[in-house]
C-alpha cells in the first residue's frame, strides 16, 4: 500500500472539514463544528494502474492511503500550517464559490505552498471550489431568489489553476458531487509520479551498474599473471 500525506487549506467556513467528511465517511452534517488547530483522518482508496506494464501488482488495484490533515481556517491558526504541509505530497486548497474573498485567501495559500515547499514540482495541489449546491439552477426562478448565488467566476478560478499548474474542481460536500474525483485524481497523479520516479531510479541504477562494470573492465586485474602488478 502506498501512503501519502495530504493537507487541506483554505479560509474559515469554506467547507474543508465537510469535504473530508464526505470523502472519508460519505456523509454530511449541516451543523458542523469549526476546526480548531487541525484534525487528522485517514482514508484508503483503490485506483487502477495507469500503466499496466509497469504495474508490479499486475491487474490488481493499487491501494493508496491518504493521511489527511484538516486545518483550521481562521487566520490566527495560519502559523501552524507549515507543520502540516511540510513533507506533504498533496494539498487541497478550498474556497467557497459563494464567497468572493475566499478565492483570494486560497490564492495566498497556493503562493505560500509554492514558495515554502522544498520540492514544489512534487507537491500536487488541487484548487477546489466548494458549495456549488448553493448556486441555483438558472431554470429555477424560485430557488435562485433564495440562493446566495455564485460569487466566484468559474473561469477566474479555472484560469488561475491553469496558470499555476494546479488541478481544479468545483464540488459540493453537501451533495457529494465531485468530491470523490478530487481525491482519485490526486491519487492517480501521485501514483504516476511514483512510477516515473521508479523508472528514473531504475535507469540511474542501471547506468551506475554499467559504469562500474566499465570501470572494472578498464582496471588491470590483479589476478592477471601478465599484469605488471602481479
Amino acid at each position: 500500500m502506498l501512503q501519502y500525506k495530504l493537507v487541506l487549506l483554505g479560509d474559515s467556513s469554506v467547507g474543508k472539514s465537510s469535504i473530508v467528511q464526505r470523502f472519508v465517511k460519505d456523509s454530511f452534517d449541516e451543523q458542523r463544528e469549526s476546526t480548531i488547530g487541525a484534525a487528522f483522518l485517514s482514508q484508503t482508496i483503490k485506483i487502477k494502474s495507469p500503466n499496466k506494464d509497469n504495474d508490479q501488482e499486475n491487474d490488481e488495484d493499487i491501494a493508496i492511503k491518504f493521511e489527511i490533515w484538516d486545518t483550521a481556517g481562521q487566520e490566527r491558526y495560519r502559523s501552524l500550517a507549515p507543520m502540516y504541509y511540510r513533507n506533504a505530497n498533496a494539498a487541497v486548497v478550498v474556497y467557497d464559490v459563494t464567497a468572493k474573498d475566499s478565492l483570494n485567501k486560497a490564492i495566498t495559500w497556493v503562493d505560500e505552498l509554492k514558495s515554502k515547499v522544498d520540492d514544489e514540482k512534487k507537491l500536487v495541489i488541487s484548487l477546489v471550489g466548494n458549495k456549488i449546491d448553493l448556486i441555483s439552477s438558472t431554470n429555477d426562478i424560485n430557488e435562485s431568489a433564495n440562493s446566495p448565488g455564485r460569487q466566484v467566476d468559474l473561469l477566474d478560478a479555472e484560469n488561475f489553476a491553469k496558470e499555476h499548474n494546479l488541478l481544479f474542481h468545483e464540488v459540493s460536500a453537501k451533495t457529494g458531487k465531485g468530491v470523490r474525483d478530487v481525491f482519485y485524481e490526486i491519487a492517480t497523479l501521485l501514483y504516476k509520479q511514483k512510477l516515473e520516479d521508479d523508472a528514473l531510479n531504475k535507469k540511474d541504477t542501471n547506468e551506475n551498474e554499467d559504469r562500474s562494470i566499465n570501470v572494472a573492465l578498464s582496471r588491470p586485474s590483479t589476478n592477471d599473471p601478465t599484469s605488471c602488478c602481479s
Binding site: S13, D29, E33, S34
Partner: peptide
C-alpha cells in the same frame, strides 16, 4: 457569526 452558526450542533 460563522462560529455561532455552527454551535450547539
Amino acid at each position: 457569526k460563522l462560529d455561532v452558526e455552527r454551535s450547539f450542533h
